[in-house]
């Protein structure tokens, strides 16, 4: 009886901890999302209004430039820039990273570990530290405030990690499959496309999501390399809501939702592959 009771208490404690955990994990984000659907006056109200009296899409209408009191922030342009830059750089980084990851997974060559470590160390250079010289060089190349300038930088940002992940995915595929295909009459290239690539596809997609998120969320470099609606991305655009002393919280929260939603969808699509790729590539040397 007492043992039963103790077990139940233990289970309850476990659940309580898990529940608190969820609250801490979710509430900050949810609060921002909730605020996106509330009028600014409710957000600023003193005493606070806990439960919204009504939910409204006004904030979204405002930042997209509909309705009466517009906010002159070109969110649509930022969204477009973010999409173009993140997608393009992801596709390129995937192509380059897949080639690199395949080389790491399937070939023995001299300086393999050194090359791998080198790529990682280059990736570790802090964005803000890199932004200084890149800013100067890009100005000379005319790449400041251009989508291309940011795309190039993001490709470099994503290649090392993409290669690492994809290396892990290819290693989960036995080398014999490619060999069997070659004995069966394929060239190495055919064996790759018909056997290894289809098997690694979901993993490569996961790596792509990771790369996309990195580009989509990046701020330190983007804030220095972009100027105008020609290239400004959403995270940089977020700064538009801050004036010298005030912040348009409602508008900002609405924009936050716009940034989060695509990221959210993508991540949940591939979360399983993401974890398996990370652990496999890391653990099996």
């Amino acid at each position: 009886m007492t043992r039963d009771l103790r077990r139940q208490l233990k289970a309850a404690a476990l659940w309580l901890t898990a529940f608190l955990l969820m609250v801490v994990m979710c509430v900050p984000g949810l609060w921002v999302v909730l605020s996106a659907f509330r009028p600014n006056r409710e957000i600023l109200a003193k005493p606070p209004v806990w439960l919204p009296e009504q939910l409204t899409l006004d904030n979204f209408a405002k930042i997209f430039g509909f309705g009466a009191d517009q906010v002159a922030i070109p969110v649509a342009a930022y969204f477009w820039n973010s999409m173009v830059i993140a997608l393009t750089s992801t596709v390129i980084a995937l192509a380059i990273g897949t080639a690199g990851g395949y080389a790491f997974a399937r070939f023995r060559f001299r300086f393999k570990n050194a090359v791998f470590l080198g790529l990682m160390l280059f990736r570790a250079v802090p964005g803000i530290a890199l932004s200084l010289p890149v800013f100067i060089l890009w100005s000379r190349l005319g790449l400041i405030d251009a989508q291309l300038g940011l795309i190039i930088v993001y490709v470099a940002l994503n290649v090392p990690f993409t290669a690492w992940l994809i290396d892990g995915f290819f290693r989960q595929i036995p080398e014999q499959l490619s060999e069997a295909a070659q004995v069966d009459g394929c060239t190495r290239w055919q064996a790759f496309w018909r056997i290894e690539f289809p098997l690694a596809r979901s993993g490569i997609a996961a790596a792509g999501v990771f790369a996309f998120l990195t580009s989509w969320n990046e701020f330190a470099l983007a804030s220095q390399l972009t100027r105008s609606t020609d290239s400004k991305t959403l995270p940089v655009g977020l700064m538009d809501f801050t004036a010298q002393f005030t912040i348009d919280w409602a508008g900002m929260c609405a924009m936050a939702v716009i940034i989060i939603v695509p990221a959210l969808i993508l991540t949940f699509l591939v979360q399983k592959h993401l974890i398996s790729g990370l652990t496999f590539g890391g653990v099996k040397g």
Partner: peptide, 12 residues
């Protein structure tokens, strides 16, 4: 839910 914060932009 645990993966939730991972997809947040740091600026966000």
């Amino acid at each position: 839910i645990m993966m939730f914060p991972m997809m947040f932009s740091p600026i966000l």
